[in-house]
């Protein structure tokens, strides 16, 4: 807002969320939340249902316009940009409730992810002459790499609407990867998945980070997964940030435990809950 952040602090931050407030007719979905993500990080946002996690993503991708605060991409405000312009900057995402193009095949969905990386205009595409042809082939090769990476070869020509839920989630991740984003927003990528599917997804997320080096913000409900793979975690409750730090720090925070498990656990059972959480984390680690 008015206070200009010192240059040193701004530098290096890929994305900055600065005192953002978003409300819907009285309901405050995001209340004065600030955080930043640096290149190469795996940042995670957790919190109970309705805490405002998806709303933060929608603000980042330009679908919601916050009433207060600022959102900066490499130091420049993106509040005035349309969602497609933010995508062009290099922000890709998946959705909590699958938002695939259901009448298209897996290939076409992934090729649509390449939209921002392609140029073909009206005339070139109608005529499908040399330029469009090469562009299609080149981008098809990129998409094939992603298909290999996500192990969805046999679904290639399938209309996504007819695929099982877990596979659709994977395709949606693929579509976002096809954009070759600098920042990838994952909204509950393992929600509704069974253990095996969850482990696969966790493996993909780690691979994306290690092999592709893509910065990620992971919104999750599943504490264990987050504690296991995130570099830094922010905890939200009722639209407010109640804690942030490394997974270990956050786990010890009494506010976090209170938010997750209710008031009565806060004092006496704290140690037990902590053990439980760690146990989950170990389980997930063994799985992947």
């Amino acid at each position: 807002m008015t206070a200009v952040a010192p240059q040193a602090e701004t530098e290096g931050h890929l994305v900055e969320f600065d005192s953002v407030k978003l409300s819907f007719k009285g309901v405050v979905a995001v209340n004065q939340v600030s955080f930043h993500v640096d290149s190469g990080e795996l940042f995670s946002i957790i919190g109970p249902n309705g805490a405002g996690k998806t709303s933060i993503f929608n603000c980042l991708s330009g679908l919601y316009k916050p009433q207060e605060g600022d959102i900066r991409w490499r130091g420049e405000s993106i509040l005035k940009l349309k969602p497609f312009q933010i995508a062009e900057l290099g922000m890709g995402r998946t959705f909590q409730n699958i938002e695939l193009f259901e009448h298209m095949t897996v290939l076409e969905n992934l090729m649509t992810g390449r939209h921002i990386r392609m140029k073909g205009g009206v005339l070139a595409n109608l005529v499908f002459a040399g330029k469009t042809k090469t562009e299609e082939i080149e981008n098809r090769a990129k998409v094939e790499d992603i298909i290999d990476f996500l192990e969805i070869e046999r679904w290639r020509k399938f209309p996504v609407g007819m695929m099982p839920y877990g596979m659709q989630k994977r395709v949606e991740l693929g579509r976002a990867l096809a954009m070759e984003p600098d920042l990838l927003l994952l909204d509950e990528p393992v929600a509704g998945m069974n253990l095996e599917e969850t482990e696969d997804m966790a493996r993909f997320i780690l691979d994306i980070r290690e092999e592709l080096g893509i910065t990620m913000i992971l919104v999750e409900h599943d504490m264990a997964l987050v504690m296991d793979i995130a570099d830094r975690v922010m905890v939200l409750d009722f639209g407010q940030k109640i804690a942030d730090g490394t997974p270990a720090e956050v786990q010890k925070n009494p506010d976090v435990i209170r938010a997750y498990l209710g008031e009565e656990f806060a004092s006496d059972d704290l140690k037990e809950v902590e053990r439980e959480l760690e146990g989950d984390a170990i389980e997930a680690a063994e799985g992947s």
């Binding site: 969602p83 497609f84 890709g92 193009f101 259901e102 939209h115 579509r175």
Partner: peptide, 14 residues
């Protein structure tokens, strides 16, 4: 087709 199937997701894909 993307706009037809999911206009919001299409915008977010660029």
């Amino acid at each position: 087709a993307a706009i037809r199937d999911r206009d919001i997701a299409a915008e977010v894909m660029g």
